[in-house]
């Protein structure tokens, strides 16, 4: 995935079954952000892989004061990349059926 300067990782083991999963996001490289960034730490949240949209979560983070509005796209993309990877891994580990 592209280096956005924003890191998103699983905050729990993925059992491959539940749709809602805990993710953790933090800024690795503040220079990649457009807006002024106040280092607040790692942000943990739950994300529903089936129902939710990464960009909506990014918007909620902006509204909660974690990021400047100009960085909503980069945060959304960072979450989307990680979510895509989780889904891709899940697809590859689906048990074979008759």
């Amino acid at each position: 995935a592209e280096d956005t300067g924003v890191r998103v990782e699983l905050a729990e083991d993925d059992d491959g079954k539940k749709s809602s999963i805990a993710l953790k996001l933090w800024v690795e490289d503040p220079k990649k952000l457009k807006g002024k960034y106040k280092d607040s730490g790692a942000i943990e949240f739950t994300f529903d892989l089936e129902k939710e949209v990464p960009e909506v979560v990014a918007q909620e983070m902006v509204e909660s004061g974690f990021f400047h509005e100009s960085d909503v796209k980069i945060v959304g993309k960072s979450i989307r990349d990680r979510v895509s990877l989780i889904k891709w891994k899940r697809e590859r580990t689906v048990p074979a059926r008759d």
Partner: peptide
Amino acid sequence: SSTTQVVHSAGRRFIVSPVPESRLREQ
């Protein structure tokens, strides 16, 4: 370590905790 919670008006809960130094990229 200290953690804080921020609840967005849409109901999502954000739990904020310090990033372990080992997880930060060396500049």
